[in-house]
Design a protein around this nucleic acid. Sequence first.
RNA 1: CGGGAAGUAGCGCAGUCCGGUAGCGUACCUGGUUUGGGACCAGGUGGUCGCAGGUUCGAAUCCUGUCUUCCCGACCA
Length: 492
Amino acid sequence: MAKELTTRAQDYSQWYNDLVIKGELADYSAVRGCMVIKPYGYALWENMRDVLDKMFKDTGHQNAYFPLFVPKSLFEAEEKNAEGFAKECAVVTHYRLIADPNNKGKLMVDPEAKLEEELIVRPTSEAIIWNTYKTWIQSYRDLPILVNQWANVVRWEMRTRLFLRTAEFLWQEGHTAHATAVEAIAETKQMLNVYADFVENWMAVPVLKGVKTANERFAGAEDTYCIEALMQDGKALQAGTSHFLGQNFAKAFDVKFSDQNNKQEYVWATSWGVSTRLIGGLVMTHSDDEGLVLPPRIAPIQVVIVPIYKGEEQKQVLDEKVSEMVKSFKAAGIRVKYDNSDHARPGWKFAEYELKGVPIRIAIGARDLENKQVELARRDTKEKAAVAMEGLTQTVENLLVEIQNNLFERAKKYRDEHITKVETWEEFMQVLDTKGGFISAHWDGTAETEDKIKELAKATIRCIPLDNPLEDGKCVLTGNASTQRVLFARAY
RNA sequence: CGGGAAGUAGCGCAGUCCGGUAGCGUACCUGGUUUGGGACCAGGUGGUCGCAGGUUCGAAUCCUGUCUUCCCGACCA
């Protein structure tokens, strides 16, 4: 029987959950709020990770690894950062279990094994890293430090959703140290551009680059730059952030260096990260009611080949023919899977690989061998065509590029059509409730107005776009004078 | 943390009101026929019904407690 998928129109949230679980990206686990990332989903993450990792290294960064645990005294050193994360920290208080004398076969926490100082399971690593940088930095010659780490972090969220918000998630966090503010700001912007480049050109997800308002800023940052994407239900998703941390952490951890004039200066910092949340954004950007739709450049399987045969004899002929094709594909760097397993019939396989979002499917049977052709089906448009075996590898290479471009253009068109300029509060609410997407509106620049809008509309300022044109106007809520439009949306 | 729902075979569910020793679909195994959009026939395997206690001759079913998960909300760099 078919794996029943909920459609987007029926229940968008359920559709998303169905895709993640039935598409075998991830599954719920026995641990509240934590997911199991399954091999197919992890392969996707590995592809994303590998591309990003190369981009980081190409911009001069190195990987390192810091501890999972942060002593409480270090964690609280940068006050704003600590306060921002305090209410969602997992805390280790003991280090040993013993047999429970009142409950045979069960264990209990040994009250004798209480830690002198509690350990915070990192929700982010600024504290432990800056405490370390203190020992790495003495002179301007030690700067800059350009380090990234691939890690897991824990944020004890009250409400979780697969990939979008889980208690534990995988990410990378870059932490850099610089001699000047100018240099640190340049780094912050550079990494924002790296993220935008990756998300748009590899994931085919269009993003808006901008800077957060003070309210939405990372705890402990001077400025938070972000890329914002738009999902098919009209809600925005923060896809990545890059923070200019000023000297906040240097001061909190007393990290100084001697400059060329032997003067002691505090170090300037940045941090930047993207997480497995990107996978959630990917799913909600491209997928449809038949299942996942993955962009070719990061799809674990780019091409699946399904043989159609009657009897063992035909199968062997096909196996032989297809092995040549596979060899040619692999030589061209195409990630290909030949599924000649006998326990499922072709129709079942078609549906299965559509559900899993494989960009191209090739079906080949006796009929095709005779005509020296194959059936080529593309996942993004669901179009099927008979194409010649002659030059097939080139045909497939071209089609992969075309699909990649089509996905991006399709998503960008949708996104652009869902940026709406509004002038009045009535329009603001109407667009929000009926059309969704980003709303470009004037805002008087105060946190009070921002809070009020959040309360009234459940919409937040996603960002102030970079290179935002100045334009005199009136705040959409208060009518006060405003110098520029900002982007509002309901968000994940 | 507030509200709701659910825990019975790998997965999805019925049975619970009205107590009598567990069933359906799918998956899985065997054999056969099949194979161009989620095949069909036949025969099988698999669960002491989340956990603990109570009522009863007898509990998936009634009572008490407890644990867990999901959904909605609040919260969310």
